[in-house]
Design a protein around this nucleic acid. Structure first.
Length: 226
DNA sequence: AACTTGTCCAACCGCGCTTGA
DNA sequence: CTCAAGCGCGGTTGGACAAGT
């Protein structure tokens, strides 16, 4: 007798599939996804079932907008760990790696591109360590990027050397995204400040609020000089 | 109103690591 | 010890919807 392969379904999940999956997980637990997929009667791969459960059906998941505080955690942890989405997600209860990854790629990357047009540049020859605003587009911008570059509030200086100048310049732009970003930057807490003078390799130390698991000291590689 | 372009996000894919027979 | 299956992770895709022209 020839075993007939059941063609697996792909694409968006139906409500009844969700219910079937939830029932199966309730009985069998969150493991052996291939076996669970078969036992549940779903025409889905175990991998697909796991993904659906982890990213959508799992209890205590938060659905909805990323809060300002969550955003700050994402930015800081990405600066520290890079694209370790699952690791970052573990610091944000209720958020999935997929959600964070999507958020990063769309929202923050978009801000980076917007601000590239705004042309914020760090002057690498500036021995004072201050960041200057120039008319040329560069990699440095006041948001995290896939390049791993990031400028903090106290690193941004306007022509007079005053960071408020820079924020004012940024606020002159018309894009709502830029407006949101400058608002966000101006709301950074006072304890999120650079504690050390910039080193040649732009490797600074920050104290951050208690909300990251009680750790008091973090280090960030802000600029690799490339 | 119709079409185009941009954005978001759920889901898929491929790869590498872990586990267990 | 070996190897296949299971699993987790990060990258990518594609469809739905919104915004712009």
């Amino acid at each position: 007798m020839v075993m007939q392969e059941v063609e697996l379904r792909k694409g968006p999940w139906l409500e009844e599939e969700d219910e079937q999956l939830a029932s199966a997980v309730a009985v069998l637990g969150e493991r052996r996804w291939d076996a669970l997929a078969k036992a549940s009667g779903l025409r889905r791969s175990g991998k697909s079932c796991r993904l659906r459960w982890m990213n959508y059906l799992r209890p205590n998941l938060k659905h909805g907008n990323i809060s300002a505080e969550e955003e700050r955690v994402i930015i800081e942890l990405h600066e520290k760990w890079g694209n370790k989405w699952s690791r970052i997600a573990r610091r944000l209860p209720g958020r999935t790696d997929n959600e964070i990854k999507n958020y990063w790629r769309s929202y923050l990357k978009r801000n980076h591109l917007v601000l590239d047009k705004g042309c914020l540049n760090r002057d690498m020859n500036n021995t004072s360590g201050n960041t200057s605003l120039t008319s040329e587009c560069g990699m440095a911008s006041p948001c995290s990027t896939d390049d791993g570059c990031f400028l903090f509030k106290d690193e941004i200086f306007g022509p007079s050397g005053d960071s408020s100048d820079a924020l004012e310049i940024l606020s002159l732009t018309r894009s709502p995204y830029e407006t949101r970003l400058t608002e966000w930057m101006s709301n950074w807490p006072p304890d999120h400040i650079r504690k050390t003078e910039p080193k040649d390799e732009y490797y600074d130390e920050f104290y951050t609020p208690e909300w990251i698991n009680g750790d008091s000291t973090w280090e960030f590689s802000l600029w690799d000089g490339e």
